[in-house]
Amino acid sequence: MIFDKPLHLPGQKRKPLTTVISLPSDSLMRFAMFIGHSFPQSHLYLTQDEEMVTATAIPVAKKILKERLNNNVTPTFIICNMEGGESLLPGLLELLQDHKHYRKIPFFVYAESLDTVQKETLSKLGGIDDIITAKTTPEEFSTKLQFARKFRLLSAKTQMEEKQQKRMLTKQKVDYVLKRGFDITASGLILLALSPVFLVIAAAIKIDSRGPIFYISKRAGNRYKVFNFYKFRTMVADADKRVKDLSHLNQYDVNNANGGPVFFKLSNDPRVTKLGAFLRNSSIDELPQLLNVLLGDMSLVGNRPLPLYEAASLTTDNYAGRFLAPAGITGLWQIKKRGQKEMSVDERINLDKDYAEKTSFLYDMWILTNTPKALIQKDNV
C-alpha cells in the first residue's frame, strides 16, 4: 500500500491521509482507476472482473499507470475527483492523450458541483468524456461509459486514417517531384542527343511516302486531360479515315453492343508504310513523345494516352481508374503484353489499373529497366 497527501487547493482544509489501494505490479487483473477521495457508489460502477485502484494524488496515479503499462495493463476507465488538484489535471490529460496505449481510456471528472468558470476550464482542456456527480446512477454511468468507449475507438480510428493519409500524401509529393525531375532531365538530354537522328528520320519519312513527318492526334491522358500527341508518321496519310473499313480486323476481342470499352489495334496493319513498319517495330516512332514529356503532358512511364473515341468508352467506375495514372511512353502494358496478338480489353485495362494503384518512382524505375527487351516487337502492331 502507498500513502500520499490528499489533493487540495490553497486556503482549503486538508483532509486526512487516504490509502492508495493498488494491486501488485505483476498482476494482469482488469482495473478501474479513481483519483481523489470521495466517490459515492464507486464500487457499483465496476464489473465483476474489475478491481478498484484508488490514488489520492495525480502524481501517484501517473506512477501506477506507468507501472501497470509495463505489464501491458491499462485501466478500463478513469474517474478523477475535481475537489482540489485542478492545476495538475492538464498534465494528466496530456499524458493520456500523448500515449497511444492511454488514448482509448474513457476519462471522467467527478464533482459534486461545478461553477461556470470551472465548466469552461474543463471544456477547453479536452480529453474529458463526461462529468460524474453523486447523483449519477450505475445505469447512467454504464451508458456514459459505453458511449465514451465507442467515441474514443472511433476517434483513434479517425486519427490513424488521418496519419495514413498524411503519409500517403507526403509519399505522393515526393514521388511526383522525383518523377517530374527525372522526366525533365532525361527527356531534355535525350532530345538534345538525338536531334541529328531526328533529322535523318524526318528526311526518310518524306522520301518513303507522301504526308507530314509527324502524326499529331488528340489523346486523353491523366484524369482525361486532352493534349496533342506526337509520333513519327508510320502510316499512309489517310489512315484515320480507314478505321471503320478495317474494324473487322481488330485484334481486341470486343463486343461493343452494350456500349463497352473500345480499343483498336491491327496485327500487320495494312495502313503502315514500309519505313513505318521498321519505325514501329524498333519503337523509334515513339521518340517525338519526349516532347510531350518535356511539356508535362506525359511521363516516361505511365499508361498509354488513348485516342478520344477509346477514352470516351472508359468513363465508368470500373474503367476510369486507369486514368488516375499519368500518361506515359512506356508502362506495365508495354513490358508485359506488347506485341502479343491475343489480348482482351479487360486484360489491357487491368494492367493499366494495376499500374495506377501501384505507381511510384521506384516502380517506374523497375519498368524502365525492363523496357529495352520490349522495344523490339515480334509483330507489326
Score class of each variant (00 low, 15 high):
residue 303 N to G: 12
residue 14 R to A: 09
residue 215 Y to I: 01
residue 360 S to T: 08
residue 95 L to M: 14
residue 44 L to Q: 15
residue 148 A to E: 10
residue 64 I to Q: 02
residue 100 K to Q: 10
residue 108 F to W: 13
residue 116 T to L: 03
residue 360 S to C: 02
residue 283 S to Q: 10
residue 17 L to G: 02
residue 296 G to F: 06
residue 103 R to K: 13
residue 77 F to M: 14
residue 381 V to K: 08
residue 63 K to E: 12
residue 101 H to V: 00
residue 13 K to D: 13
residue 280 R to L: 05
residue 50 E to T: 07
residue 318 N to I: 13
residue 50 E to S: 06
residue 193 A to V: 13
residue 210 R to G: 15
residue 10 P to N: 02
residue 376 I to C: 11
residue 253 D to G: 01
residue 48 Q to V: 05
residue 261 P to F: 09
residue 36 G to K: 05
residue 263 F to Q: 05
residue 374 A to T: 13
residue 26 D to P: 00
residue 197 V to P: 02
residue 379 D to F: 03
residue 53 V to A: 06
residue 307 P to Q: 00
residue 265 K to V: 05
residue 207 I to S: 04
residue 347 E to V: 08
residue 219 R to E: 04
residue 46 L to S: 06
residue 237 A to V: 15
residue 258 N to Y: 07
residue 148 A to T: 09
residue 354 D to T: 11
residue 155 S to P: 00
residue 291 L to K: 07
residue 96 L to Y: 12
residue 71 N to Y: 11
residue 200 V to L: 15
residue 144 K to Y: 12
residue 337 K to T: 07
residue 42 S to K: 15
residue 7 L to W: 07
residue 270 P to H: 14
residue 358 K to M: 02
residue 28 L to A: 03
residue 52 M to P: 12
residue 210 R to N: 15
residue 331 G to Y: 06
residue 308 L to W: 07
residue 135 K to G: 00
residue 256 N to V: 08
residue 54 T to W: 05
residue 38 S to R: 13
residue 40 P to R: 08
residue 167 R to L: 12
residue 50 E to Q: 14
residue 319 Y to F: 15
residue 61 A to D: 08
residue 6 P to Y: 06
residue 86 E to L: 15
residue 116 T to V: 05
residue 260 G to A: 11
residue 118 Q to R: 15
residue 161 E to T: 01
residue 164 Q to D: 06
residue 150 K to V: 01
residue 357 E to R: 11
residue 163 K to H: 04
residue 41 Q to Y: 12
residue 242 R to I: 12
residue 353 K to W: 00
residue 226 V to I: 13
residue 224 Y to D: 04
residue 274 K to T: 15
residue 164 Q to T: 01
residue 21 I to P: 00
residue 275 L to T: 12
residue 133 T to W: 00
residue 17 L to T: 08
residue 240 D to V: 01
residue 273 T to Q: 04
residue 338 R to K: 12
residue 315 T to P: 00
